[in-house]
């Protein structure tokens, strides 16, 4: 077992479909409280890698430990100890704000008393008083995503996985969303995030860039820019991502 200095430890993690190595022996660590940006072009293998890390896809080979649990043998424990939200699926549109919180809180085994307290705190924090009983489907996307992030944190997970959480969100709400990310990280939650917005890559403590199943670069945004002798993460990405 590992020391819990690292919330994710991956060594030569590989996923093979037939002859095709979607994820090809990636190794990296993510520290507690770190905001880790997981970048790559469409089809580079990000989603496949993420599925292994959150315990819903078995690796072909290699090793990985997430939140203190092994991806091969303790996938169920991983699921209980992480938070997850994606752009495509986050909340149920035909449940109200309150019902969604209650539902996901229940899934994660929060007690009634804790849940009640959490609901009130959350509605207070996000300023959702007037719409707590409205269907989530009627909310603007930005609100939905902010709520989904809070819901992903309900059970105080060590780490939360965010798969393109801000796609299509307006620029102001997108920034409010990142302020929530900073806050959570500041309070010790580890953030693992994918994004296609390169300004958001700059907000990460460290960034990895996947190309054709491999991690081709991994460092702080500052060092990556120095390494590739460019002025923005967008240009780092453009230099790398076509292999």
């Amino acid at each position: 077992m590992s020391e819990i200095n690292y919330v994710i430890e991956a060594t030569d993690l590989t996923k093979q479909f037939g002859d095709f190595k979607a994820v090809n022996a990636i190794s990296f660590n993510v520290k507690k409280g770190e905001i880790f940006g997981f970048l790559g072009a469409n089809g580079a293998g990000k989603t496949t890698a993420m599925k292994m890390l959150i315990g819903i896809s078995n690796p072909t080979s290699g090793a990985a430990n997430v939140a203190g649990f092994d991806v091969f043998t303790q996938a169920e424990s991983i699921k209980k100890n992480i938070g997850y939200m994606s752009q495509k699926f986050a909340l149920y549109d035909d449940l109200t704000v309150k019902e969604n919180i209650t539902f996901f809180g229940g899934i994660y085994g929060l007690s009634r008393a804790t849940l009640k307290q959490k609901i009130n705190a959350l509605i207070e924090e996000l300023g959702l008083h007037d719409i707590a009983d409205n269907l989530v489907g009627a909310l603007p996307l930005g609100w939905k995503q902010k709520l989904a992030f809070s819901v992903a944190l309900l059970h105080n997970p060590k780490i939360v996985f965010l798969d393109e959480p801000t796609g299509g969100v307006d620029p102001i709400t997108r920034r409010q969303f990142w302020e929530m990310i900073y806050k959570a990280a500041h309070e010790g939650t580890t953030i693992f995030v994918t994004t296609h917005y390169m300004d958001e890559a700059e907000y990460c403590d460290r960034v990895s860039i996947m190309v054709n199943g491999k991690i081709e670069a991994l460092d702080t945004p500052k060092k990556l820019k120095e390494q590739f002798k460019v002025t923005s993460m967008n240009n780092v990405f453009l230099k790398l991502a076509r292999g």
Partner: peptide, 13 residues
């Protein structure tokens, strides 16, 4: 209509 939503920066370019 939003041909590049969810598309990576290289493909967008």
């Amino acid at each position: 209509d939003e041909p590049t939503t969810g598309v990576d920066p290289v493909s967008r370019k």
